[in-house]
Each structure stands twice: as C-alpha cells, then as structure tokens.
Design a protein around this nucleic acid. Structure first.
Lengths: 235, 235
DNA sequence: GCATACACATGACATATATCACATTTTTAA
DNA sequence: TTAAAAATGTGATATATGTCATGTGTATGC
C-alpha cells in the first residue's frame, strides 16, 4: 500500500482500437473519450481490492494486470491476467456486488476508467455493445469452467505444463521461443494452484527433460508438442 | 443413450413466474409462450452434450439438471445444478461456441425450449432483460471463481463440508434437516473434485463426528455451525 | 553501496488422498 | 421375480505433493 498508486496519463488513447468498443457509434466513442480518465500505474500497485465496492470499469490500454482471489489462509489464486484491450472490474458493476477479486499491476500499465453509469448507459442504448460484452462474459465463464475441471482432475505437473502453454497463447513467445511474460515462481504456483516449491521442482524437471530452458524468470519453450502431451492439453 | 429422451409436456406453464422473465413486457411473454416448446425428461436423459451445437436455451420449469464437464480421462466435474427458474445452455448460444458442458437430468424435469433467435431478439429489444441476463452471468462467473479458489486451496475434507452447505443453500432442508437433493457418492465426489472412495470415507468420518446422519443417499445435517467451521466457510 | 527483504533452490519428512482389490448391498431392467 | 449392473463400504498400499528447514542468490530502497 504505497501512497502514490497512480499518476495521470496524458497521451492520447484511441479507444476505438479496442475490439470491445468496435460496436459503438462515433458519438458514443466521442462521449466516452470525454469521460474516461486515464492513469499510469506502476508495478505492485492495486487497482481495486477484493471486497471493495467498484463504481466503474477499467480498460487496459497497455500493460498487464493480475486478477486474483485471496483464499482464507491468505494464499493468492490467480484467476487471469488482463492485458491490452481487456476490461476489468465490470463484473462487479453489472452484478452490483462487491469486487470478488483483487486487481494488481504486474507490469507498468495504463488504465482508462469508465464510470459505472456510463457503462450501463451504453449497455442500455447500444444492444450490439451489450451483446459484445455478454459474449465476453460467457467466454470467460466457459474458460473458468474448463480451468475448474483441470484443477480438480489434473496433477500439478499437468497443470504446470498447461499454464505454460496458456501463457504462450496469451502473451506470445519472442523470436527465441521465450515467454514474453515473466512471473515469479510464486505467481506461477498461484496460477497452478500449488506450492511454490513444487513449481520450482517441476520446472527443474521440465528443464531436465529438455522441455524448457530457464534463465531467471525467463522461460524458453523448447518442445511444445511434448509440453502439450505432458499437460494433456487437447485443442 | 436411450431412444426416448423426452416427451411433450402439455400442462400450462407460467413463464412470468420466473424471475429472469420479470422484465419482459406482456406482449413479449405472450410471444414467448407461443414459441416455447415444453418437454418432460426423465432421470438420466441428456439435454445436450459437451461439444454439440446448441441452437437455443432451456428454462427449467420443474426438476433438477446436472451441468458437468468431462475431464480427459472421462471423469465428470460437476459445475452446477440447475433447478426451477434457471436457464441452461444460453452461454453457448450467446458466445456462439459449442457447448462446453453436458446437461443431464437427475430428477424428472420439465424444460421449455427457447430458440436462439428468439433469445437474441429479446436481448436486443429489451435492454432490461439483457441486463438481467448479464447480471446472472456475472454472478455465475463470480461463483465459478470462488469455487476455483476453493478447489485449488482447500482440502477434500473442507470442500466436502462446503459442498454439503452449498447443497443446503441451493435445495433447502426438509423439516428434518435433511438435504432435499439426493446424490450418489460418485456425484458428490464429482462436485468436490475427488475420488468416490474418499467421499465415502469422509462422510463416515462426518457421521462419527456427529456432523451428519446418513440414510442411504439422504444426508441429515446435525451440526451446521461445525460444518461451517470444518469447511472454513466464511459468509 | 550497503542492508534488508525477497526470490530461488534443495533436502528431509509427513500425510492426505488416489488407486486397487474385493466384499456387500441396493437399484435397475428384463 | 430374478439376474445383472451399479453403488456402497473397507482395507491395504503407493505416491504426489505440502510443509518445514536452511542456504544461497538477487533485487530494491534508503
């Protein structure tokens, strides 16, 4: 909890470049541009906390936001990462509940804030936008169900392999086949739903099996087909 | 896979009695009544299968439907139970994806089918209805996230206690404090995300600890406060 | 630049839970 | 009603994974 969580962000943001706003009319985008407030957040700062009231939603313009729940013993469970173009916080606005997750910046991030009233106004006035957001939510729900099944049925080893592949899909590899996102071992553990030590050990095993190469937090995928096999990932 | 999965259901159904349709106008309900086709399904029949294309949604008029995913080794993971007033299948219609779950009848059930076009038409024309459905989806998403965290972090014992309490909330107790829904041990295991034998053993332990009383598939909750404690359930 | 707090790594150990095997009981269908 | 198929229950056993302890390396802030 630092004092300065965010600073104003003055550069121009083109909201229309984000898929979710594609269905808005010119006037609606214009209005949105007037209303939104953009801020720059640095690593570690909290956007909102589980249990707090959220009065609006944020669109991620740039950067990465970690969305997680805190288990009753204080352990984090990472639900997802939001990146450029993703909306965060809207779930609570729409269901009118307290935030059920915490959003924490893990890479310097630019966020634009859209007040809840503006969001609901758009949803009411523009059914296409409403459908787009609904589609998004439904997709997320589908993913959540899949993830649930995996955690319930797969071994830690399988889940770790799967998480690496998921990170590849979400954040791409660089020319060197290295994951663009770098997470701590603890964060990986909090995605997989296991202990940090287990992740460390399994990563070493994967390395020994020539599936990956490790360089600090950088993970290079050496053998993706085999990772798919290890993770029992069916596409 | 029996030949006769369902038979027509002729009795009158009052769609307006379901919360989700409360926001519809009289004409919309009238139209819906014209269009919907109601059917009676018996225990064990499949409403739709994971991976199949769904062209519409069903409202549960009466009965209980088990919604589950099948893990890669064939093991079921129960996502939720749908009961009177719940919509099933709409997720796939809206996200325009194949069904990501299977819906199976576990108690004689009456379903009314609403074609996808009718659903999307209502969503487009009636923003209040759209908001209601969105609210529902967002709530489900919140629950899915909570469940995910529990499965990832809690012990099987804790989860079983929690599932019993969840079933109490969803299906109520009779005057005798007995759960109104009766599931097989395997189904309980598929909710908790564990092996059937583990559920059997843990239920015996709960019984020995005077938390519950067992009578076939009927489970009587003897000490709810202690169950809450065992499950680390915070409300 | 130094100190302090993390992050990472590895070993030893405990144990919750899965798995297998086999009775017994209950349910289902013919 | 009876046979077959599920579901339930219990014991023995294996093991994946969590936990604790301890050491080294590495950021990070003052």
């Amino acid at each position: 909890m630092k004092n300065q969580q965010s600073v104003p962000y003055t550069e121009d943001v083109d909201l229309l470049s984000f898929d979710i706003f594609k269905s808005l009319t010119e006037e609606e985008v214009e209005e949105l541009n007037q209303i939104t407030i953009c801020t720059l957040h640095k690593r570690g700062s909290i956007v909102y906390n589980e249990g707090s009231r959220i009065n609006g939603t944020y669109i991620v313009v740039k950067g990465i936001v970690k969305i997680y729940k805190t288990g009753f013993d204080g352990k984090e469970q990472i639900i997802r990462f939001a990146k450029t173009g993703d909306l965060i916080g809207f779930r609570s606005v729409i269901s009118n509940e307290l935030a059920c997750t915490t959003a924490k910046i893990i890479d310097e991030t630019v966020l634009c804030y859209i007040p809840g009233e503006e969001l609901t106004k758009l949803l009411k006035e523009n059914s296409e936008f409403a459908m787009a957001l609904m589609k998004l939510t439904c997709k997320e729900l589908g993913e959540a169900n899949k993830f649930l099944t995996d955690i319930a049925q797969k071994t830690v080893r399988e889940r770790l392999a799967e998480v690496l592949l998921l990170l590849m899909d979400e954040f791409e590899l660089d020319e060197d086949n290295t994951l663009q996102i770098s997470l701590t071992r603890e964060e990986l553990a909090n995605m997989v739903g296991t202990a940090t030590e287990s992740v460390i050990r399994l990563l070493s095993e994967f390395k020994a099996d020539k599936l990956i190469e490790l360089n600090g937090r950088k993970i290079k995928l050496l053998n993706i087909p085999k990772l798919i096999k290890v993770g029992n990932v069916y596409i």
